[in-house]
Amino acid sequence: MNKFFRAIIAGWGAKKLGGGCLSTIIIFIVIYTLLGKCNQDTKAAPAQHKQIVPVGVHR
């Protein structure tokens, strides 16, 4: 999510939920951080398994 839109959404949420000045700032920071966490890529690349090949073993 774009940082600009994160700030807009967090500001709107903080305005709706916040009561005073300090609580509004804290709520803004919490919402902004949570929106940043939701943006992270949760799909990790699958682990690539290496095939172990014995060296020097003769049949």
Results as ranks from 00 to 15, higher is better:
Ala7Leu: 12
Phe5Glu: 15
Asp41Asn: 12
Ile27Phe: 03
Lys15Thr: 04
Val57Lys: 12
Asn39Arg: 02
Pro46Asn: 06
Pro46Leu: 09
Gln40Phe: 07
His49Met: 14
Ala7Tyr: 04
Phe4Arg: 09
Met1Asp: 12
Val57Phe: 13
Gln48His: 07
Ile9Asp: 02
Ala44Ser: 08
Thr33Ala: 10
Gln51Met: 14
Ala44Gly: 03
Cys38Met: 13
Trp12Cys: 11
Trp12Leu: 15
Ile27Leu: 11
Val53Ala: 08
Leu17Ile: 03
Ser23Cys: 01
Gln51His: 12
Asn2Thr: 11
Val53Tyr: 11
Gln51Val: 15
Val30Phe: 01
Gln51Trp: 07
Gly18Ser: 04
Arg6Gln: 13
Ala45Leu: 14
Cys21Arg: 03
Gly56Glu: 11
Thr24Cys: 02
Leu34Pro: 00
Leu35Phe: 08
Ile29Pro: 00
Lys43Pro: 00
Ala7Cys: 07
Ala47Gln: 13
Cys21Ala: 10
Ile9His: 00
Lys3Pro: 14
Val57Ala: 15
Val57Asp: 12
Ala7Lys: 05
Val53Glu: 14
Leu35Trp: 01
Ser23Asp: 15
Gln48Trp: 04
Lys37Ser: 06
Gly13His: 02
Thr42Glu: 13
Arg59His: 12
Leu34Arg: 00
Lys50Asn: 11
Lys43Glu: 09
Lys16Asp: 07
Ser23His: 02
Lys3Gln: 10
Ile29Arg: 00
Lys15Ile: 04
Ile25Val: 11
His58Tyr: 13
Ala14Ser: 15
Met1His: 11
Val53Phe: 14
Leu17Glu: 11
Ala14Gly: 06
Gly56Tyr: 08
Lys50Val: 13
Thr42Leu: 09
Gln51Asp: 11
Tyr32Met: 03
Leu22Asn: 04
Phe5Ile: 11
Gly11Pro: 03
Gly18Thr: 03
Gly13Arg: 01
Ile25Gly: 01
Phe5Thr: 11
Ala14Val: 04
Gln51Pro: 01
Leu17Arg: 03
Ile29Ala: 13
Thr24Gly: 08
Lys16Asn: 06
Gly19Pro: 00
Gly18Glu: 02
Cys21His: 07
Cys38Trp: 03
Lys37Val: 09
Lys15Arg: 09
Gln40Cys: 05
Ile27His: 00
Asp41Leu: 07
Asp41Glu: 14
Lys50Phe: 14
Ile9Ser: 04
Gln51Lys: 12
Gly13Ala: 10
Trp12Val: 14
Ala47Arg: 06
Lys16Trp: 08
Gly19Trp: 02
Asn2His: 13
Leu35Lys: 00
Gln51Ile: 15
Gly36Gln: 06
Lys3Ala: 09
Gln51Ala: 15
Lys15Trp: 14
Met1Trp: 06
Val57Thr: 13
Lys3Tyr: 06
Leu17Val: 04
Pro54Cys: 04
Val53Thr: 15
Lys16Arg: 09
Val55Ser: 14
Asp41Arg: 07
Ala10Val: 01
Lys43Ala: 10
Leu35Cys: 04
Ser23Val: 06
